[in-house]
Design a protein around this nucleic acid. Structure first.
Lengths: 220, 220
DNA sequence: GTCTATACAGTGATAGAC
DNA sequence: GTCTATCACTGTATAGAC
C-alpha cells in the first residue's frame, strides 16, 4: 500500500517496512487473540506497533473499528473459499449434501493462518446482538451464506424455506460453538474430546448435521 | 432473607424492602442484560440499587463475582428442572429420544423469569474460555448434563462414548446460539424466522437434533 | 459486619500543535 | 499524519464511621 514498498528489491517477501496501518493491524490481531478484547488496551497495541496512542486512534477512530478491520481481513478469504468450493461442486454435477456441508464448514475451521484467533472472534460476535456486531457479520458472510441456502434448497426440495433457514441457523450454532472451544466438552468428558482438531471435529460434525438437515418434518 | 421482611402484611408480594445484596443483584441482572458486561459500570449498578460504590465492592469484591452470583441464581432452577423432568421421564418407563431432548432444552428456553437476560449471559459465557467463565458454567451445569449424557447413552447404546459427547456438544451449540438470538437468522431470512418464540424454536430444534443423534456412525 | 467517603492507576477518546 | 497533553470514566483498594 505504501509507496515506499516499491523501493524494496524484488523477491524479498515479508518486507520489513510495512505501513503503520498494517503494523497496527498485525499487532492488534496477535494481541487480541492472546488476551481477548478486554485483555489488551489500545495503548499496548500502539506500543507493540511502535506508534503512539493517538496515531492508532487516527487510523481507526474507536477500538471497535480496529476489530472490524481485523475480522474482515480474515473473513473475506473464508467467504471466498466457500463460494469457490461450491462453484467447483456444482460444476462437477451430482452433489451430495455432505459435500456441501463440508465445503461450507471447512474454510472456517481451517482458516489457514491464525485460525484460533479468528475463531474466537467469530464466536464472540455471534453472541452479541448489537448493531455493530451484526453489521460485521452480515458484511462478511451474508452473500456467501445465501448462496449455500440456495444450494441446500435444491438438494432438499421437500423442505419449506423457513424450515431450511432454521436448520441452517442450527448449523451455524454448532460451528460457532465448536470453533469457540469454550472447554465445555472437555469438562463433560474429562478432556477426552478436543474440538481443536479440525479433521476430528469435521468428521463428527458433517454426518450429524446431514442427518439433521434430512430429518422428517415435525408434525404440524 | 432480611429479618425485616416478616413485618410486612401477608399477601404483599414483591416486598419493597429487600436487603442491599438482593437489590444489587436485581439491579445488576437487569443492567447487564440491557447493556452487556462492559456496557454497564459497577457505579451505575450501585446507583440503581441506591447504595454506594464501596458497598457493592464489599459484597462482591470484584465485578466478575457479581456476575457469577447472578448467573448461578438463574441457572440453578434450570438445572433442577432438567433433572426433575428426566426423573419423571425415567419413572414413566418407555422414554423417547425426543422427550429427553425436550426435557433438556425447554427449561433453558423458558427460564420463567427474565428469560432473555439469562440467555444472553449464558451464550456469552459459552464463548469465553477463561478459567473464570468455565467454572461458572461447570458449577451450574456439569452435574445435570452428565445425567443427560448417561440417559442418552442408554437410549443410543450403539453410539461410542466419544461420539455421544460430540453430539451433546453440538446440541449445546444449537441451544446457545439460538438463545443468544444474534440476529443472524433474521439477516439471512429477511426477518422471516424469529428465535425468540420458544415453542417455534423447540419444535424445530428437537427433530433436527434427534435425527443428528440417531445418525449413522461416520466411516472410520 | 455493613457502609461511606475518598483516592488511585489505568482505560478509550479527543484537541490542537508540529 | 503523527505527536503531546489532557479529558472523563473505569474497576479496585483503603481508612474509618456506625
Amino acid at each position: 500500500m505504501s509507496e515506499l514498498d516499491g523501493a524494496l528489491e524484488p523477491g524479498s517477501e515479508a518486507a520489513p517496512a510495512r505501513s503503520v496501518r498494517e503494523r497496527l493491524i498485525m499487532a492488534g490481531e496477535q494481541l487480541f487473540a492472546e488476551h481477548g478484547w478486554n485483555g489488551v488496551s489500545i495503548r499496548t497495541i500502539a506500543a507493540a506497533a511502535g506508534v503512539s496512542l493517538a496515531a492508532l486512534n487516527y487510523h481507526f477512530g474507536v477500538k471497535e473499528h480496529m476489530l472490524a478491520e481485523i475480522f474482515a481481513a480474515r473473513a473475506r478469504p473464508i467467504a471466498e473459499a466457500r463460494v469457490r468450493r461450491l462453484d467447483e461442486l456444482e460444476a462437477s454435477g451430482g452433489v451430495m449434501l455432505e459435500q456441501v456441508l463440508d465445503a461450507f464448514l471447512r474454510p472456517a475451521f481451517s482458516a489457514d493462518v491464525g485460525g484460533r484467533i479468528f475463531a474466537r472472534l467469530r464466536a464472540r460476535l455471534g453472541t452479541e446482538h448489537e448493531a455493530f456486531s451484526r453489521r460485521i457479520l452480515s458484511d462478511a458472510f451474508d452473500e456467501s451464506s445465501k448462496r449455500y441456502v440456495t444450494a441446500l434448497a435444491r438438494l432438499l426440495p421437500e423442505l419449506p424455506e423457513a424450515e431450511l433457514a432454521w436448520r441452517f441457523h442450527f448449523m451455524l450454532g454448532t460451528m460457532v460453538y465448536t470453533m469457540a472451544d469454550s472447554g465445555r466438552i472437555q469438562a463433560l468428558t474429562n478432556g477426552a474430546c478436543d474440538p481443536g482438531e479440525v479433521e476430528t471435529a469435521l468428521s463428527r460434525l458433517v454426518p450429524f448435521l446431514a442427518a439433521g438437515f434430512r430429518a422428517a418434518l415435525p408434525p404440524t
